[in-house]
Design a protein around this nucleic acid. Structure first.
Lengths: 118, 118
DNA sequence: CCTATCGGTAAGTGGTAACTTACGGATTCG
DNA sequence: CGAATCCGTAAGTTACCACTTACCGATAGG
């Protein structure tokens, strides 16, 4: 129900390159804000702001550790994203079937052979 | 090699809500630009611009059909996205293992029970 | 306590990207 | 060969967002 809403937020959140960078840094385990900022070409407050967005998208969670604050990857957002992508994939597949495929098939189209994938 | 680059573009492209809307409309099969625009609260040129971005991200392809132009979902971008997400997932899993999990576990943390997922 | 470290928030700025209208090229049909 | 339909591009405006610096609260340690 609220799944798609989470996925929407996740897509929005990962729409920014810097935010993806921050997110990937957390894949190795939990890190402090300063630690993350030290590995990025942006200031620490910027990282804080990015982390907030990621947190609202249920992509990360945080816990206090003394004077610091440790962030780590959260399952929820990733799962929502994967589910949404799965749906896209399935729907697209049936569409492909209807359209007699095409993709990676040099020949096959009757009407308009002017493919342009760029 | 260039896979991750495609995924980057795909994430950027799907970072916009309107673009996601356009993309999802194509899941049912190929559609013309005007057809898509008619189902969205934006102008037709706007849709054209969005389609261009999606095309550059290898998420859609197009072919001429008389005076119209039919767009459809393309496999490449979706696959790159799924692969990237899979990697994220795997990396995150091992991180979870190291951190003795947490998520969805009300108890378990010794140091700092002040969880804040929001 | 006083000080230092760490991080979130406020306030302000610049760049950009999402949108609009206007125009022009291409294709189809009478 | 007009006339109509469909679409892409150009040009311009506006809103937003990513980033900065400055400030403040919270925690830990001497």
């Amino acid at each position: 129900m609220a799944h798609t809403a989470i996925a929407e937020h996740a897509f929005d959140a990962l729409g920014d390159p810097t935010r993806r960078h921050v997110f990937r840094l957390l894949h190795g385990g939990e890190r402090s804000v300063g630690d993350i900022a030290a590995r990025l070409p942006v200031s620490r407050p910027a990282v804080s702001q990015h982390l907030r967005v990621l947190k609202e998208a249920a992509l990360v969670s945080d816990r206090p550790d003394g004077v610091r604050r440790l962030y780590s990857v959260r399952r929820t957002g990733l799962e929502a994203l994967r589910a949404e992508l799965e749906t896209m994939w399935d729907e697209a597949l049936s569409a492909f079937a209807d359209a007699a495929d095409d993709e990676d098939r040099p020949q096959g189209a009757r009407r308009g052979t002017g493919r342009s994938d760029r």
